[in-house]
Amino acid sequence: MAKTIKIRAKAKNGVTVVKALITHPMETGLRKNKKTGEMIPAHFIQEVVCKHNGKEVINCEWGGSVSKNPYLAFKFKGGKKDDAIELAWKDNKGNGDSISAKIR
């Protein structure tokens, strides 16, 4: 269930622009809970992969300093309307999510 990902891919003049927004706390592990004084455990996305018609078009390694609810935008050559775009992420706790969409 792709509840955590919003994605939009649009092809124009031979280039596809992919924009994705992921819901995630992106806790660095370096922050204290102001009320309890305890460290908030690290919880952040480490890897994001995006494929176009099954072929990888970007592979990201992220640290905890990527902002909460991360945003990713990139461009690749080729891609046309209705081609398949898939995006998946995995965090340091082994959780993850994926989404499948069509280029518009």
Partner: peptide, 28 residues
């Protein structure tokens, strides 16, 4: 990378052939 963060590395984007060197994200 973010110079003044205690761990400066923020993200690495691996770009296969055909992907343009033009990426955007948001950092702390």
């Amino acid at each position: 990378l973010v110079e003044k963060n205690s761990t400066p590395l923020s993200a690495v984007f691996h770009l296969p052939k055909g992907t343009l060197p033009d990426v955007s994200t948001r950092v702390k």
